[in-house]
């Protein structure tokens, strides 16, 4: 009995003292869904570098979820030092609704504050039984497409806009035709998860759907997880340049006294070391040399930008994803 008590006490003390490392600085990075593996690697590299340079131990806590959901959580008071979300609008919202950082945040770091980019690709089952090659194949009768909810997921908004851009910019395309195409596409969607990762799980683990509209990085990761046996990636004839931006949340870092390390953390994402890690985790690095070194993994294809097709994120959000916007209109009639 006594021994049992002692061992229970030991177990309890182990359990309750786990977090007592000598952490000098703690950052909270609130990120979107598919960056789980990326920031695990980047955080370790940054912590090592910061220790060598400044001598401080930095611990970076992560929170992941749908980009819109994460943005909302920061607005509601989730104490993020940095936000690394899927698209600029979600950080704009933090600026507009909670005024935690200036509206000009995107000009503060190079290349629209996006150290890495990605795009939207198709993940299909091995052998591509539906012969999916390009966007129009996604509306074949009977095919089912998995993509998350554009209202809550950043990746889903990029996917939606990529499909729209294709249809609007195709020969003879216009706004109405694009709307009809995207509406048709969403009639083939059997599941609408709240985040990109949930959608990948649905497609990969649960075997739902014939095509997953996915971030390029997420598709590569799913491929890697399955050992390349079950799926393959299809690159459409064109897609969209997805820019997931990063920002320091000014009011929070000033309150925490973590501005210096937070800014260094984001600048670190642009260094060759970090860019190499980003490429390894299937994000397209901004560094052209490193991108070229990984060209086998990142085939080049024409990529529309949000500015050229949709006039920027604020407008795209307004037209397509606001209450009663295009997406709601497409969904109103029901399946």
């Amino acid at each position: 009995m006594k021994r049992l008590v002692i061992s229970l006490a030991v177990a309890a003390s182990v359990l309750f003292t786990g977090a007592a490392e000598a952490a000098n600085v703690t950052l909270l990075n609130v990120s979107y869904d598919p960056t789980r593996e990326l920031y695990k690697d980047l955080n370790a590299a940054f912590a090592a570098q910061w220790k060598a340079k400044a001598g401080d131990v930095v611990t970076i806590n992560m929170s992941h979820g749908g980009s819109g959901a994460q943005s909302r959580a920061i607005i509601d008071g989730l104490d993020a030092d940095v936000a690394t979300l899927a698209l600029a609008y979600d950080i704009d919202a933090i600026s507009q609704k909670a005024n935690l950082l200036p509206a000009s945040w995107q000009k503060r770091l190079p290349q629209n504050s996006t150290p890495y980019t990605s795009t939207i690709v198709f993940l299909v089952r091995k052998g591509n039984p539906w012969h999916v090659k390009d966007w129009p194949d996604l509306v074949k009768p009977g095919i089912s497409v998995v993509t998350p909810n554009p209202k809550t997921s950043g990746g889903a908004r990029w996917s939606y806009l990529a499909a729209w851009a294709y249809a609007e910019k195709a020969p003879g395309g216009n706004f109405e035709k694009a709307k009809a195409f995207v509406a048709n596409l969403y009639h083939h969607v059997p599941v609408l998860d709240t985040g990109a990762r949930g959608a990948t799980t649905t497609f990969a683990q649960r075997g739902i759907g014939d095509v997953l509209l996915s971030w390029e990085n997420e598709a590569h990761l799913a491929l890697q997880e399955a050992g390349g046996e079950k799926y393959q990636i299809v690159y459409p004839s064109n897609s969209i340049l997805a820019e997931p931006p990063v920002a320091v949340i000014d009011k929070n870092v000033d309150r925490h006294g973590t501005r210096k390390v937070a800014e260094a953390y984001l600048q670190f994402l642009y260094t060759p070391q970090a860019q190499e890690i980003e490429a390894k985790d299937f994000y397209r690095p901004r560094d052209q040399a490193i991108l070229a070194a990984h060209h086998a993994q990142f085939p080049s294809l024409p990529l529309y930008t949000i500015d050229e097709v949709f006039g920027g994120w604020t407008k795209a959000q307004q037209v397509h994803f606001s209450d009663g916007g295009m997406f709601d209109q497409i969904y109103k009639p029901g399946p």
């Binding site: 977090a19 909270l28 806590n61 992560m62 929170s63 992941h64 979820g65 959580a73 989730l78």
Partner: peptide, 8 residues
């Protein structure tokens, strides 16, 4: 209400 911060 959690905020989903890993480890916290």
């Amino acid at each position: 209400v959690s905020g989903h911060i890993r480890g916290l």
